[in-house]
Structures are given as C-alpha cells and as structure tokens.
C-alpha cells in the first residue's frame, strides 16, 4: 500500500530550480532515504513534504491526502524530526513536548505517559524535566525524535538527524529508527552513505534537484560495478596472487584483492585449496555509496 506519492514536483526560487520534476512513491512501512550532497534538493523536498514549503508545481499526497490542500490531516499523521532542531530554551523538554502534544490533541495524561515512554526509548530519562538550554546537541536531537513520535504518527519525516552528533548519540538515534522500520513509513534525508545503506529499504539519489537514481542500496551498488571485490589473506599471498591471475583480475596484490564475477569465486577457491594454500580470512568489499555518487557524477 502506498503511503506517499510525489508527482512531478518542481520548486523554483526565482530563476534557480531547487527541485526538478521529482516523482516517486513510498510504500507503507518502508524506510525511504533521500541521499545527496549539500544543495541537491533533498531538504527542500522534505520541507515540501512537511508542508513548510509550497511546490511551484506538482502534487504530494500522503495516504491520499494532498499536502497543500489537506495540510491539517497530513500534519496530524506526520512526525517531523529536523536536524539542528531548536526549542524554547527556558522550557523543559517535557514542557516543549507538551506544546506539540496539545497541538496534536493529546491530553496532559497522554503527553506525560508518552514522554516517559519515549524518554526511555531514546535514553533521555531523567533529563526531560531539565531546561532544554542545558541540553547537548545529542540530547536536542533525541528530544526532536521524541517530538516526532509523540503523537504516534503514521509517517516520519527525518531531515539530517544525525548531523553533528557524537558516535554514541548517532548510534542510538539510528537504532531507534531501525527499530521503527516496518512499523512506520520513514522518509529520511542524509548525506551519510553508511546511514542510508544501513537504514533504508530504497534510496532516492538526488543531484542538482533531480532524482537521478531510485533503487535499493544493493541495486545502487550493483550499478557502480559488475563485480565484487574479494580481499583474501592466505598462508602465501604471493603464490595466491599468481594463482588468482589465472582466474580473475586483481585489484591489488598487497593486500590481495580480486575482482570476481559469479562462478569465478568458486574456481578461485578450488585453485587456492588445490595448491595447498591455507585461507586465513576472506572479506567481501562492497561498493560504498561514495562510489555510487562518483559514478552518478560521471553520468551527469
């Protein structure tokens, strides 16, 4: 079932086109990543989805509701999680969340219950009753995630949430998002390749306002090269390299990295074992999304 449909969305700022005829749809429960460098148009697009920016043309529908026309229905069903979020510093985390709760029609009791539950989920227990001006950026981002989940929305829009976070906080936030996969429809923007790779079912790659690729992370990587890179450690790497050249091309001799396709893996191992070499480790090097970007850049 389709949760989100974006059709021919264009956003112009004067003569500059920030989003150029973007169309895609997101299935219910899917985690969809919008990936791109700064200025690619992903934040502009997510602001359009959030109803904060009107598209110059095109339509965005969420569960059949038009984001522009039926904005209130859409916002009631959507949670927004923005990177570098800000809150009223002299209010506590709970008070700031209460504002959001009231806006979504929650009672005091419901807000308090949800806040306690979510604080536990994001590791912010014992801090929600402190003023947010005392929060670190990691705590603010966690609060932002709590705000987005407070009214138990069907769709979660996440914009650069882990930017500027320390490793631990980013890991926790990613874990929460990962746990929500399948339960909520998530659209996230990021320029962290590993994050999109780990979290997203599909990735839309944006470049200069256009959606230049829309595939699963694996399919995207396959686009970059038609072979896998196999890094091997054996009892005699020099001899192993000599044998490997008979089967496949080498990426490098030290460390020994072979470019293998399909059945070549099988053959290579037969050769190595047949020659009495001891295989100590095997590591499959997948293409990174950085490589995907480079490839897309070349195509452009």
């Amino acid at each position: 079932m389709e949760a989100l449909r974006i059709k021919n969305v264009v956003k112009d700022y004067g003569s500059s086109r920030a989003v150029d005829s973007v169309s895609f749809s997101v299935r219910k429960g899917e985690c969809f990543g919008l990936l791109g460098t700064n200025g690619a148009g992903k934040s502009t697009l997510i602001n359009i989805l959030a109803g904060l920016l009107s598209p110059t043309s095109g339509t965005v529908k969420m569960h059949g509701w038009d984001v522009e026309e039926d904005w209130r229905e859409v916002k009631m069903r959507t949670g927004h999680c923005f990177g570098f979020s800000c809150y009223m510093g002299n209010l506590t985390g709970r008070q700031n969340l209460r504002v959001m709760g009231y806006a979504h029609g929650l009672s005091d009791r419901e807000v308090n219950e949800r806040v306690d539950e979510l604080a536990e989920l994001v590791d912010l227990e014992g801090k929600v009753d402190e003023r947010t001006e005392k929060y670190s950026s990691g705590m603010v981002q966690k609060l932002s995630l709590m705000a987005a989940l407070l009214h138990d929305p069907e769709v979660l829009l996440v914009d650069e949430l882990t930017v500027g976070l320390d490793v631990e906080a980013a890991k926790r936030v990613r874990q929460v998002l990962s746990d929500l996969k399948g339960k909520k429809t998530i659209v996230l923007t990021t320029h962290y390749m590993a994050e999109a790779d780990a979290l997203c079912d599909r990735i839309g790659l944006m470049h200069k306002g256009k959606l230049v690729a829309l595939e699963t992370p694996l399919e995207l990587k396959r686009r970059v090269r038609d072979h896998d890179l196999l890094e091997l450690k054996t009892s005699d790497d020099r001899a192993a390299a000599a044998l490997a050249t008979k089967v496949c091309d080498l990426e490098s001799k030290s460390p020994l990295v072979c470019r293998v396709r399909g059945e070549q893996v099988n053959t290579l191992f037969k050769y190595l074992v047949g020659a009495g070499l001891d295989i100590r480790s095997v590591h499959l090097r997948e293409p990174t999304l950085e490589e995907v970007f480079e490839k897309v850049g070349e195509m452009e």
């Binding site: 959030a50 904060l52 923005f82």
Partner: peptide
C-alpha cells in the same frame, strides 16, 4: 529561538 520550522510543522 529558531523554532519556526517546528512551530509550523505542527497542525
């Protein structure tokens, strides 16, 4: 307080 985005993202 730079809360414009959060405010108008609410219904």
């Amino acid at each position: 307080h730079e809360t414009m985005r959060q405010t108008w993202a609410m219904p």
